[in-house]
Design a protein around this nucleic acid. Structure first.
Lengths: 197, 197
DNA sequence: ACGTTAGTGACACCGAGTGCCACGAGCAAG
DNA sequence: CTTGCTCGTGGCACTCGGTGTCACTAACGT
């Protein structure tokens, strides 16, 4: 009973050390030029143990993203029908990405890697697929159509595109807050890109 | 002079053999369970030569996608300002994906792999990034803003999302033509998802 | 003191991808 | 015809990501 807690804490701690080491090494030398041996050494563990904590080299950058997805699903589930479907998705995205000021530097580091390193950009597709499933399921529930139909899929993938784009401009600019960028992107999307006219 | 043509033809021919072998083996046994040795054997070449023709195992599935992107860029460049920006992008996507009837089976095979196999889905991000750059540049040229600004990026990535979704439903249904699915997805996008209301 | 359980490290192994070198076919000039 | 050049090819060795296996150890319950 108490052991499981202690063990879980230890696991969490080494996992954090791995993530921190990977983040620093990747930003310093680039993703491809860092070996798993080096990350393991920097984290004070063996290479084999490294692969027991993270499912792969690219995975070391993502914190516990699964919890992130779960929170997003909960927020969408708590949505009422007052707001539009897109507005509820936007609100959920904004809320789930409402980080504390102290966490922003690490978020910047993480997102810069994910958005610039080709291998991580490719790998992100796998992680984001889980987000898409959650959003598509929400749209399907709200509209009463199949989650695999065109509209739920399209809404899921293009709202995620909006979120990704918002992250990109937030990362590039530095002055614009993340929430503002998210709202701007979602407004463009929901209005059929009014600024094009 | 004549030699270069002959050589280029030979290169094209082995490239086609590689692609055909890879497509068949991947659909038969799954991407992960097929080794590069097996593809090379099936194509009648050595493993080393395999990697001289394609840049990686995942790359073997994509034909000459670069030419695809070039054609898309040309179509966008030939666009007049009569139609809206989104309409011009939609037209370009439809036209560049207007395959002959005889090519549809291979296209189906290719897209089924790309959209279902996780490794290929991840790798597609790298190839599609070139498409996004072309579309974003077009939007930037039409609207007079920076290609790295929010709207060009967002239009590029969400129109590609529309195209991907159209491919998914085309692949899943079998009866709906690809052009129709593309138009439907673009209509949803351009109208701010009217079917959600 | 006992067996159990879980985390760890060491080792061997597989597969993707790359650098290097040697071979042979085709071509041009002597 | 022979020499020299280019270029595609195959073989080889190597790095690196990732996995299966086994033995060790520490903490826990009995």
């Amino acid at each position: 009973m108490t052991q499981t807690v202690v063990v879980a804490d230890a696991r969490e701690e080494t996992r954090t050390r791995i993530e921190s080491a990977a983040l620093d090494l990747f930003t310093a030398h680039g993703f491809e030029r860092v070996t798993t041996d080096e990350i393991a050494d920097a984290a004070g563990i063996s290479r084999r143990t490294f692969f027991r904590h993270v499912s792969g080299k690219a995975d070391a950058v993502w914190g516990d993203f699964d919890a992130h997805v779960v929170r997003l699903a909960e927020m969408l589930a708590a949505t009422t029908d007052d707001a539009s479907v897109l507005a509820s998705i936007c609100a959920a995205y904004v809320e789930v990405n409402d980080y504390r000021e102290a966490d922003l530097p690490m978020l910047r580091q993480r997102m810069r890697l994910i958005l610039t390193e080709p291998a991580l950009q490719a790998h992100s597709q796998v992680r984001y697929a889980a987000v898409d499933r959650v959003v598509a399921a929400h749209v399907a529930a709200r509209t009463g159509v199949d989650p695999d139909a065109l509209v739920p899929r399209l809404v899921a993938i293009s709202t995620r595109a909006a979120a990704t784009t918002a992250f990109e401009v937030w990362l590039a600019d530095g002055r614009v807050p993340l929430g503002a960028a998210l709202h701007q992107a979602f407004d463009e999307l929901a209005g059929g890109f009014p600024s094009l006219r």
